[in-house]
């Protein structure tokens, strides 16, 4: 019965069954020697690597560096995308002036700019920030613009009839109306953010998780390479959960987001 499947401890454990089975299968294959460690190390070896890296402090350092890069890029690119999205959503002139250009640039994969970015910024911190900011800019810009544009015009007329000034109209009607769409943009942007950071750190960096993985590759330390991949997965999942929590808080009025 559907009703019994959605309740109780069994249903809460259900999503974990397949990942757990995979890890067990992986461990058994490694222990029996079917998987040579230079192809894929055992889960226990990855855990051991994590423990060593934790103890010498390098894991926390690299994690901190990567996290700071991701967040700075997100804040810079996200703030510009959000502002331009609002501007072009609210002003017809702004949209006619800027939107066609932005739509054109949007079609260039931002990672294709890497050679140019290295020439402009060298391989320093600014190159990586630029790439992450550029990557997160477009999803946030497009979804903010779309959200503002799609606020129910009947609600805007209602606000005007009740004497709302532009500021109140924006804060009480337009911004809350655009918020679901802005959150969609944020979740897209988080995906792009990690992807860009991995690529940027793998190509040119002397710190961060991506650098840790590339340095380990040179010494065939597959356990540390796998550890880096697992860390990226965890970071991505955490970012997604944080967004979901924000959605639940700010979109509680929307039946589609309440208690999902």
């Amino acid at each position: 019965m559907a009703a019994t499947a959605s309740e109780g401890p069994f249903s809460r454990a259900l999503p974990w069954l397949v990942p757990l089975a995979l890890v067990i299968l992986w461990q058994v294959s490694s222990s029996l020697g079917w998987l040579p460690p230079n192809i894929l190390p055992a889960p226990t070896a990855v855990l051991e690597a994590a423990w060593t890296k934790l103890q010498d402090g390098s894991l926390i350092d690299n994690l901190g560096v990567s996290f700071a890069r991701a967040m700075s890029g997100l804040i810079i690119g996200g703030a510009i995308g959000f502002s331009l999205g609002l501007l072009n959503g609210l002003s017809k002139t702004g949209e006619m002036l800027l939107d066609p250009t932005l739509q054109m640039i949007r079609n260039i994969p931002h990672l294709a700019l890497i050679p140019l970015v290295i020439i402009w910024f060298g391989i320093g911190e600014s190159a990586r920030l630029f790439l992450v900011a550029l990557g997160v800019f477009f999803p946030i810009y497009l979804n903010t613009l779309h959200g503002v544009r799609n606020v129910d015009p009947q609600l805007i007329e209602m606000g005007r009839i009740y004497g709302m000034n532009n500021r109140t109209l924006f804060l009480k009607v337009i911004l809350p109306g655009a918020l679901p769409s802005i959150f969609v943009g944020l979740r897209f942007a988080l995906g792009v953010m990690w992807l860009t950071l991995i690529v940027a750190e793998t190509i040119a960096a002397n710190s961060g998780i991506g650098h840790m993985a590339m340095a380990a590759r040179e010494f065939m330390q597959t356990d540390i390479v796998v550890l880096s991949i697992v860390i990226y997965a965890i970071l991505g999942k955490l970012a997604d959960s944080a967004t979901r929590a924000l959605e639940r808080k700010f979109l509680a009025w929307n039946p589609a987001y309440a208690k999902v």
């Binding site: 009947q154 609600l155 007329e157 209602m158 009480k172 009607v173 809350p176 109306g177 918020l179 979109l251 009025w253 929307n254």
Partner: peptide
């Protein structure tokens, strides 16, 4: 005819 309420309020 439509209530035109703010869904988020």
């Amino acid at each position: 005819q439509e209530p035109r309420l703010l869904p988020w309020a």
